[in-house]
Every structure is written in C-alpha cells, then in structure tokens.
C-alpha cells in the first residue's frame, strides 16, 4: 500500500508549522505519531499534499506536574505517559487508560495530542479528557486560544480546531485528594478500538463520568455525573444510557452496545469507588 505523494516538512517550532498550514490550507495536515493518519494515507482515504511532521518541535513535549494542574505537551506519546512516575501519582487514571490503547509499538509512536485532536470517536483520550475536564490549547496564526475538551468535539472527525491551528498542550486540573478513579474498556482484541469504555472519577459529593465509542463524539454526561455524585449508581447508569447513541457496526448491534456500556460503566464505577477515600 503506497500513499499518494506529498511534500514533507519538518519545522522546528510551532510558528513555522502554522506558517506551512496557512500557506497550504486544507492541502496540509500535521503529522504527530502518524498511527491514525498514515494508515488512512496508505488506504488513500487521506491524501494531503503537504505533511507537517511535528517531531522536532520541543515546545510540544514535556509533562509538568503543578500543584493544581498537570499540563501535557501534544507530542507526548502514550509510552511517555505510562512511564512518567509523577503523572502516575498525580493522575493515575491516565496510565490506566494509556495501557489499554493499541499495543506497545503503537504506544511508542501514538501521541496524546494526535489522539485527542483527530476527533476519532474510537480514541480513548477524548472521553478521558472530558471526564477530567481538561482544556486544550490551540495555537493559530493569531495566537493561542483555549477550548474545553467538553466543548471540542462536534461530530466524528469534526472538532473546534481550525485547519490552520495546532493543538499544542493539554491542561488538566488535579482531582481533590481521595478522589477515586477508573478507566474501563472492553474490546474484541488487542489493538482494537473500544466496544465500550468508561472514565469515572468519584469523590466526596463529586463525580464525573464519560464514555467512549458509543456516539459520534465522546459522551460526558452532566446528569450521570450528578447522579453518581449523589451516590445513585443506577441513576448514573440510566442517565448515561440515555446520553449515548451507539450505531450498529462490526462490534455489534445497538442493543448489545448498550448492554456492554452498562456493564463497563458499572465496573468502572465499582473500581473508582473502591479507590476513593
């Protein structure tokens, strides 16, 4: 499988990368880990004339653990997330989720920025970022702006990011001490996207619940979160099943997916509650 030809750019900073995007408009795509884009290019379902490889841009790297928030550079790989001890202490749910993404080789290349920016409903990080109430920083020709993960996703592969913007950083508020957490996923096999996955945070009188691959965007439910915050597990599950909108595909019919969603969510809640304290 040979992709269509393209011109390759490897800029050293974000400003130069944006300049290439501005010059070539929707003919250009940024390349992070490439494990979503390159397969699409090999299938000729994507054929960008210009590819802007972000690997040399140092400002897109790094994980900073602050007292109130954690920031993660867009080019941090899933492997980096798993290996980072400070992150495992501050936000262990990220390691739990990252370990369930694809396989080791893909995790060495796949980045958190690519995972959240691509808008693929099958990706795990968008739902998790909604659960954590993360904020994305987008850099464009006119400077940077911030968009909440909960407001970023419009439809499958459609997001609030403009063609000439690059998602540069993710900022995640640190949950209060004692907050329980879990990321639970069922998939058919290693490397597959979720049949259903759930991200759950639960603390004293607070909760946040989001699910993955059960609609054309990740689904964070305010009603489900409020129910769980009040200790009402069945109310939480009912509200979430109301919020999701799965479609039939090779992972199963709608009724099965709703069933799986309920099972996965209950498991995630139970594990999160067992870790709260």
């Amino acid at each position: 499988m040979i992709p269509a030809g393209f011109a390759y750019h490897r800029p050293a900073d974000v400003a130069s990368a944006i300049a290439v995007l501005q010059e070539h408009g929707d003919e250009a795509r940024v390349l992070a880990g490439g494990h979503s884009l390159i397969p699409m290019m090999k299938l000729r379902m994507a054929a960008p004339a210009h590819l802007v490889d972000l690997q040399d841009i140092a400002e897109l790297r790094g994980i900073e653990i602050g007292a109130d928030a954690v920031t993660i550079g867009a080019m941090v790989t899933q492997h980096d997330l798993i290996a980072h001890e400070g992150l495992a202490e501050a936000l262990p749910i990220i390691r739990e989720a990252a370990l369930q993404i694809a396989d080791p080789q893909v995790r060495y290349k796949g980045t958190i920025g690519g995972n959240v920016a691509n808008g693929d409903p099958g990706n795990d990080m968008p739902g998790l970022m909604q659960c954590l109430d993360a904020t994305y920083t987008l850099a464009g020709p006119d400077g940077t702006r911030e968009v909440k993960a909960r407001e970023f996703y419009e439809a499958a592969y459609f997001t609030a990011r403009e063609d000439d913007e690059i998602l540069t950083r993710i900022t995640i508020p640190r949950p209060a001490a004692g907050t329980g957490w879990a990321y639970e996923k069922v998939k058919r096999k290693i490397g597959d996207y979720a049949t259903a996955a759930a991200a759950v945070l639960v603390g004293k009188g607070t909760a946040s619940v989001a699910m993955t691959n059960l609609a054309d965007t990740p689904v964070w439910s305010e009603a489900a979160s409020a129910a769980l915050a009040a200790g009402d597990v069945e109310g939480c599950v009912a509200a979430m099943l109301e919020a999701i909108d799965p479609v039939e595909d090779n992972r199963g019919p709608v009724a099965f997916k709703k069933h799986a969603a309920g099972v996965v969510l209950r498991r995630a809640i139970a594990r999160a509650q067992s870790r709260a304290g």
Binding site: M1, G34, H35, I38, Q105, Y108, K109
Partner: peptide, 23 residues
C-alpha cells in the same frame, strides 16, 4: 502492512516501531 501484525518491527531510537507505519 496495516500496523497490526508487527512482522515489520524494528528498533528506532530505542523504541519498537512498526516500520510499515513510519515514513
């Protein structure tokens, strides 16, 4: 050739990568 099987795995700068999914 679709980044599933790993037969093309090589070590690149100390990381295992599927060389069918790297330009």
């Amino acid at each position: 050739e679709t980044s599933h099987c790993g037969a093309c795995t090589v070590d690149m700068d100390g990381r295992s990568v599927k060389s069918c999914t790297v330009f």
